[in-house]
Amino acid sequence: MKLTLHVWRQRNPADAGAFATYELEDVSTHMSFLEMLDVLNQDLIAKGEEPIAFEHDCREGICGSCGFMVNGVAHGEQPGVTVCQLHMRHFKDGDEVTIEPWRAKAFPIIKDLVVDRSAFDRIMHAGGFITVRTGSAPDANAIPITTENVEHAMDFAECIGCGACVASCPNGAAMLFVGAKIAHLGLLPQGQPERAARALRMVEAMEREAFGACSNFRACEAVCPKEISISGIARMNKDFRRVALAGPAPARGKRR
Protein backbone atom coordinates (compact mmCIF):
# COMPACT_ATOMS: atom_id res chain seq x y z
CA MET A 1 0.00 0.00 0.00
CA LYS A 2 0.92 3.63 -0.43
CA LEU A 3 1.44 5.90 2.55
CA THR A 4 2.26 9.56 3.02
CA LEU A 5 4.27 10.23 6.17
CA HIS A 6 4.67 13.62 7.82
CA VAL A 7 7.64 13.16 10.13
CA TRP A 8 9.12 15.59 12.63
CA ARG A 9 12.78 16.16 11.73
CA GLN A 10 15.07 17.95 14.15
CA ARG A 11 18.86 17.75 13.83
CA ASN A 12 19.71 18.43 17.48
CA PRO A 13 18.19 19.89 20.66
CA ALA A 14 18.94 23.45 19.53
CA ASP A 15 17.48 23.03 16.03
CA ALA A 16 13.99 24.51 15.49
CA GLY A 17 12.83 21.38 13.65
CA ALA A 18 10.13 20.98 11.00
CA PHE A 19 7.92 18.38 9.41
CA ALA A 20 9.20 16.53 6.34
CA THR A 21 6.91 14.60 4.01
CA TYR A 22 7.83 11.18 2.62
CA GLU A 23 5.88 9.09 0.11
CA LEU A 24 6.11 5.34 0.59
CA GLU A 25 5.10 3.24 -2.42
CA ASP A 26 5.17 -0.35 -1.32
CA VAL A 27 4.41 -0.86 2.36
CA SER A 28 3.68 -4.46 3.36
CA THR A 29 0.78 -5.00 5.76
CA HIS A 30 2.95 -7.55 7.57
CA MET A 31 5.45 -4.92 8.65
CA SER A 32 5.49 -3.37 12.09
CA PHE A 33 5.46 0.40 12.24
CA LEU A 34 9.18 0.46 13.06
CA GLU A 35 9.99 -1.90 10.18
CA MET A 36 8.15 0.49 7.90
CA LEU A 37 10.44 3.26 9.20
CA ASP A 38 13.47 0.96 8.72
CA VAL A 39 12.55 0.61 5.05
CA LEU A 40 12.15 4.36 4.72
CA ASN A 41 15.52 4.87 6.43
CA GLN A 42 17.24 2.46 4.01
CA ASP A 43 15.86 4.57 1.15
CA LEU A 44 17.08 7.76 2.82
CA ILE A 45 20.56 6.31 3.40
CA ALA A 46 20.73 5.13 -0.23
CA LYS A 47 19.89 8.68 -1.32
CA GLY A 48 22.59 10.05 0.96
CA GLU A 49 20.06 11.65 3.34
CA GLU A 50 20.06 11.49 7.13
CA PRO A 51 17.86 8.59 8.38
CA ILE A 52 15.05 9.32 10.84
CA ALA A 53 16.27 8.82 14.40
CA PHE A 54 13.94 6.85 16.69
CA GLU A 55 14.56 4.75 19.79
CA HIS A 56 13.98 1.02 19.77
CA ASP A 57 15.43 -2.05 21.40
CA CYS A 58 13.48 -5.26 22.02
CA ARG A 59 10.78 -4.68 19.39
CA GLU A 60 8.48 -6.98 21.30
CA GLY A 61 6.72 -4.40 23.44
CA ILE A 62 8.47 -4.99 26.74
CA CYS A 63 11.49 -2.71 26.93
CA GLY A 64 9.95 0.76 26.85
CA SER A 65 12.49 2.23 24.42
CA CYS A 66 10.23 3.03 21.50
CA GLY A 67 7.39 5.46 21.38
CA PHE A 68 6.17 8.48 19.47
CA MET A 69 2.88 10.00 18.42
CA VAL A 70 1.12 8.41 15.46
CA ASN A 71 -1.69 10.65 14.18
CA GLY A 72 -1.94 12.39 17.54
CA VAL A 73 -2.08 9.24 19.70
CA ALA A 74 0.86 7.83 21.66
CA HIS A 75 1.97 4.50 20.13
CA GLY A 76 -0.89 4.87 17.63
CA GLU A 77 -4.55 4.11 17.98
CA GLN A 78 -4.33 0.39 18.74
CA PRO A 79 -4.87 -0.06 22.50
CA GLY A 80 -2.36 -1.91 24.66
CA VAL A 81 0.62 -1.90 22.31
CA THR A 82 3.86 -0.02 21.91
CA VAL A 83 4.61 1.38 18.47
CA CYS A 84 6.95 -1.56 17.69
CA GLN A 85 3.94 -3.85 18.08
CA LEU A 86 1.72 -1.66 15.94
CA HIS A 87 1.28 -3.35 12.59
CA MET A 88 0.75 -1.80 9.21
CA ARG A 89 -2.39 -3.86 8.61
CA HIS A 90 -4.18 -1.25 10.72
CA PHE A 91 -3.54 1.34 8.01
CA LYS A 92 -5.25 1.76 4.66
CA ASP A 93 -3.81 2.42 1.23
CA GLY A 94 -3.42 6.17 0.74
CA ASP A 95 -3.39 7.04 4.47
CA GLU A 96 -1.56 10.12 5.67
CA VAL A 97 0.32 9.50 8.90
CA THR A 98 1.72 12.24 11.13
CA ILE A 99 4.64 11.11 13.29
CA GLU A 100 5.73 13.37 16.13
CA PRO A 101 8.02 12.91 19.13
CA TRP A 102 6.64 13.04 22.70
CA ARG A 103 6.19 16.73 23.42
CA ALA A 104 6.75 17.77 27.02
CA LYS A 105 9.06 20.28 28.63
CA ALA A 106 10.38 17.50 30.87
CA PHE A 107 11.23 15.39 27.78
CA PRO A 108 13.48 17.60 25.63
CA ILE A 109 13.95 16.40 22.05
CA ILE A 110 17.44 15.05 21.33
CA LYS A 111 16.97 14.31 17.64
CA ASP A 112 13.95 13.69 15.37
CA LEU A 113 11.72 11.31 17.35
CA VAL A 114 14.16 10.69 20.21
CA VAL A 115 13.46 12.46 23.49
CA ASP A 116 15.45 12.60 26.71
CA ARG A 117 13.45 10.73 29.37
CA SER A 118 16.05 10.98 32.13
CA ALA A 119 13.45 12.89 34.20
CA PHE A 120 11.92 9.44 34.78
CA ASP A 121 15.31 8.11 35.90
CA ARG A 122 15.68 10.93 38.42
CA ILE A 123 12.24 10.11 39.86
CA MET A 124 13.22 6.43 40.11
CA HIS A 125 16.48 7.32 41.84
CA ALA A 126 14.48 9.25 44.43
CA GLY A 127 12.53 6.24 45.65
CA GLY A 128 11.64 3.64 43.03
CA PHE A 129 13.41 0.82 44.84
CA ILE A 130 13.34 -1.32 47.96
CA THR A 131 16.25 -1.86 50.31
CA VAL A 132 16.86 -5.57 50.64
CA ARG A 133 19.73 -7.83 51.50
CA THR A 134 21.11 -9.15 48.26
CA GLY A 135 22.62 -12.58 47.95
CA SER A 136 21.11 -15.91 47.07
CA ALA A 137 17.50 -16.04 45.91
CA PRO A 138 14.99 -16.01 48.80
CA ASP A 139 12.81 -19.05 49.45
CA ALA A 140 9.60 -18.97 47.48
CA ASN A 141 6.47 -18.20 49.51
CA ALA A 142 8.53 -17.20 52.56
CA ILE A 143 6.58 -13.95 52.77
CA PRO A 144 2.82 -14.39 52.59
CA ILE A 145 1.06 -12.04 50.15
CA THR A 146 -2.61 -12.14 49.20
CA THR A 147 -3.35 -13.15 45.63
CA GLU A 148 -5.26 -9.91 45.12
CA ASN A 149 -2.23 -7.81 46.09
CA VAL A 150 0.13 -9.90 43.99
CA GLU A 151 -2.09 -9.39 40.96
CA HIS A 152 -2.45 -5.66 41.50
CA ALA A 153 1.24 -5.18 42.20
CA MET A 154 2.08 -7.08 39.01
CA ASP A 155 -0.38 -4.95 37.02
CA PHE A 156 1.46 -1.82 38.16
CA ALA A 157 4.88 -3.46 37.78
CA GLU A 158 4.15 -3.82 34.08
CA CYS A 159 5.05 -0.17 33.55
CA ILE A 160 7.94 0.02 31.11
CA GLY A 161 8.54 3.74 31.54
CA CYS A 162 7.96 4.54 27.87
CA GLY A 163 6.51 7.99 28.60
CA ALA A 164 3.27 7.60 26.61
CA CYS A 165 1.31 8.78 29.67
CA VAL A 166 3.18 12.09 29.75
CA ALA A 167 2.96 12.46 25.98
CA SER A 168 -0.81 11.93 25.93
CA CYS A 169 -1.70 13.94 28.99
CA PRO A 170 -3.14 17.32 27.96
CA ASN A 171 -1.29 18.61 31.05
CA GLY A 172 2.00 16.82 30.33
CA ALA A 173 1.75 15.10 33.73
CA ALA A 174 3.73 12.06 34.85
CA MET A 175 1.14 10.90 37.40
CA LEU A 176 0.48 7.48 35.86
CA PHE A 177 4.19 6.62 35.75
CA VAL A 178 4.88 7.73 39.32
CA GLY A 179 1.57 6.30 40.54
CA ALA A 180 2.40 2.93 38.97
CA LYS A 181 5.81 2.80 40.68
CA ILE A 182 4.45 3.84 44.08
CA ALA A 183 1.51 1.42 43.84
CA HIS A 184 3.62 -1.47 42.59
CA LEU A 185 6.05 -1.34 45.53
CA GLY A 186 3.48 -0.14 48.06
CA LEU A 187 1.25 -3.18 47.49
CA LEU A 188 3.96 -5.66 48.46
CA PRO A 189 5.29 -6.45 51.96
CA GLN A 190 8.83 -5.77 50.76
CA GLY A 191 7.81 -2.22 49.89
CA GLN A 192 6.29 -1.36 53.28
CA PRO A 193 9.34 -0.12 55.26
CA GLU A 194 9.99 2.68 52.77
CA ARG A 195 6.42 3.21 51.63
CA ALA A 196 5.89 6.66 53.16
CA ALA A 197 9.36 7.96 52.37
CA ARG A 198 9.04 6.63 48.82
CA ALA A 199 5.78 8.47 48.17
CA LEU A 200 7.26 11.66 49.55
CA ARG A 201 10.55 11.48 47.66
CA MET A 202 9.14 10.32 44.35
CA VAL A 203 6.40 12.95 44.30
CA GLU A 204 8.88 15.64 45.30
CA ALA A 205 11.23 14.47 42.54
CA MET A 206 8.34 14.53 40.06
CA GLU A 207 7.43 18.06 41.08
CA ARG A 208 11.03 19.19 40.57
CA GLU A 209 10.74 18.16 36.92
CA ALA A 210 8.64 20.20 34.50
CA PHE A 211 5.64 17.86 34.51
CA GLY A 212 2.10 19.20 34.75
CA ALA A 213 -0.67 18.44 37.23
CA CYS A 214 -3.40 15.78 37.11
CA SER A 215 -6.84 16.80 35.82
CA ASN A 216 -8.13 13.22 35.75
CA PHE A 217 -8.49 13.29 31.98
CA ARG A 218 -7.61 9.56 31.86
CA ALA A 219 -5.84 9.87 28.51
CA CYS A 220 -2.74 8.25 30.12
CA GLU A 221 -4.65 5.12 31.03
CA ALA A 222 -6.18 4.92 27.55
CA VAL A 223 -2.84 5.02 25.71
CA CYS A 224 -0.70 3.06 28.19
CA PRO A 225 0.73 0.09 26.27
CA LYS A 226 0.52 -1.89 29.51
CA GLU A 227 -3.01 -0.63 30.25
CA ILE A 228 -2.08 0.52 33.74
CA SER A 229 -5.03 1.81 35.75
CA ILE A 230 -5.31 5.31 37.19
CA SER A 231 -6.08 3.65 40.53
CA GLY A 232 -2.29 3.84 40.92
CA ILE A 233 -2.65 7.63 40.87
CA ALA A 234 -5.26 7.42 43.66
CA ARG A 235 -2.83 5.32 45.71
CA MET A 236 -0.04 7.81 45.12
CA ASN A 237 -2.32 10.68 46.15
CA LYS A 238 -3.26 8.86 49.35
CA ASP A 239 0.28 7.81 50.30
CA PHE A 240 1.68 11.26 49.57
CA ARG A 241 -1.09 13.10 51.43
CA ARG A 242 -0.61 10.95 54.51
CA VAL A 243 3.15 11.38 54.74
CA ALA A 244 3.23 15.01 53.62
CA LEU A 245 0.67 16.06 56.22
CA ALA A 246 2.01 13.89 59.03
CA GLY A 247 5.63 14.79 58.44
CA PRO A 248 8.54 12.37 58.36
CA ALA A 249 8.40 10.38 61.58
CA PRO A 250 11.55 8.34 62.34
CA ALA A 251 9.68 5.06 61.78
CA ARG A 252 8.78 6.21 58.27
CA GLY A 253 12.40 6.40 57.20
CA LYS A 254 14.87 9.22 57.06
CA ARG A 255 14.24 12.13 54.77
CA ARG A 256 17.32 13.27 52.91
Binding site: G212, A213, S215
Partner: peptide, 29 residues
Amino acid sequence: QVWLRSRAARPVRYRVFRPPAVDYAARTM
Protein backbone atom coordinates in the same frame (compact mmCIF):
# COMPACT_ATOMS: atom_id res chain seq x y z
CA GLN B 1 -1.75 27.72 39.90
CA VAL B 2 -2.27 24.14 38.76
CA TRP B 3 -3.42 25.29 35.31
CA LEU B 4 -0.36 27.52 34.83
CA ARG B 5 1.95 24.68 35.78
CA SER B 6 0.27 22.31 33.35
CA ARG B 7 0.37 24.86 30.54
CA ALA B 8 4.10 25.29 31.08
CA ALA B 9 4.60 21.52 30.88
CA ARG B 10 4.03 21.50 27.12
CA PRO B 11 5.46 24.70 25.62
CA VAL B 12 5.55 23.26 22.08
CA ARG B 13 2.14 22.02 20.93
CA TYR B 14 1.50 18.93 18.87
CA ARG B 15 0.53 19.43 15.26
CA VAL B 16 -1.94 16.55 15.64
CA PHE B 17 -3.14 15.70 19.15
CA ARG B 18 -6.07 13.37 19.77
CA PRO B 19 -5.77 12.11 23.35
CA PRO B 20 -8.33 9.32 23.77
CA ALA B 21 -10.88 9.01 26.58
CA VAL B 22 -10.90 12.71 27.50
CA ASP B 23 -14.58 13.51 27.99
CA TYR B 24 -16.37 16.79 27.44
CA ALA B 25 -16.72 17.61 31.13
CA ALA B 26 -13.01 17.09 31.84
CA ARG B 27 -11.94 19.12 28.83
CA THR B 28 -14.16 22.07 29.67
CA MET B 29 -13.36 22.38 33.40
